[in-house]
Write a protein that binds this DNA or RNA. Structure first.
Lengths: 168, 168
DNA sequence: CTGGATGCAAATCCTTTGCACGAGG
DNA sequence: CCTCGTGCAAAGGATTTGCATCCAG
């Protein structure tokens, strides 16, 4: 993967594409808020930044902590209200993993979740894995699978391996 | 499905097989408890009956209500403790559906769950639907899918249909 | 200015836990 | 009998809500 020109391709991709996407997605979020006749506030702006900078999925609590690092006066209830609004506007989606709190991420990142029941780690996988199942469920039951919201439980490779550390 | 001898086959299946299974599964549960050096109590017996008689999956609260109809003095915390014990003994499994409380059912009934995000109804489907996905996840990530615990969100046929009642 | 957005605290829902008592083997 | 199981009440985490205040448009 990372060799000769491939390395620079990756670097440029991260710098140009990654940064650009993040900047634009924040502006995109804010413009969606304005477009819905909602108000753009410091709290919403900060939540948008946290979500755009997050590599994976965040719980409401993790988002609150991250937001309060920058804006200490934003309260948890405000975070919940903002997340609710963002979800209604289609900016973010949430998923319920095996146990515990719900997790949130930008709606653009369509993927499924695998949660290990033993080590509690969560893995993101491309939603293409659910294409066949999605067709199957639609044909069999007329059920339209929400591939943004898929969260499956099971045992991860590390925890299945006999010798290795079970809590990798 | 239900026509001439097929009808009576269904009837007999429900009566003989169904009743017999239910009776025996209660005894089976109780013997598993004894075998694990745990005590058989009125509360456990009643929870076992409720679980065996349930057609679908029940929340802890629903189980509590059903148990208290017969044994009013059984407390919710006892129900939770019994459900925990039953799960450790492999008698039952639980699943977390889209939102809300966890649901429980006998471990013998291996199936997946489809939960409609609109009408909140839950549908049970055979776990065979997950065979291909299961193989795929195992090959791709070494992840062993827990097919007892699968709960998928989406939109059910009724709520997808334009004209019909959205909350069927 | 004016109503939507926020902070705070309290309420809610689901589940777990501490403790003293009661009942099962 | 001696321990495990139970009832009660209180704690716990995650999320929602009521209300007075505040700030974006």
């Amino acid at each position: 993967m990372v060799r000769d020109y491939g390395f620079w391709f990756v670097v440029c991709t991260v710098l140009v594409f990654g940064m650009a996407v993040r900047e634009s997605s924040i502006e995109d979020i804010l413009s969606r808020i304005r477009h819905a006749s909602k108000r753009v506030t410091v709290a919403k702006r900060t939540v948008a930044q946290v979500l755009a900078e997050a590599t994976g999925h965040l719980s409401a609590d993790a988002i609150t902590v991250a937001v309060q690092e920058r804006e200490p006066d934003v309260s948890p209830s405000t975070i919940y209200r903002i997340l609710e609004e963002f979800e209604e506007l289609g900016i973010i989606v949430h998923a319920h993993l095996g146990q515990g709190a719900a997790v949130f991420h930008l709606a653009g990142t369509v993927h499924g979740h695998l949660t290990c029941e033993i080590c509690k780690q969560t893995f993101e996988i491309p939603s293409t894995h659910f294409d066949d199942l999605s067709h199957d469920l639609l044909e069999s039951y007329g059920f339209e699978l929400d591939r943004h919201h898929v969260a499956l439980s099971g045992t991860c490779a590390q925890c299945r391996a006999p010798g290795s550390t079970p809590h990798g």
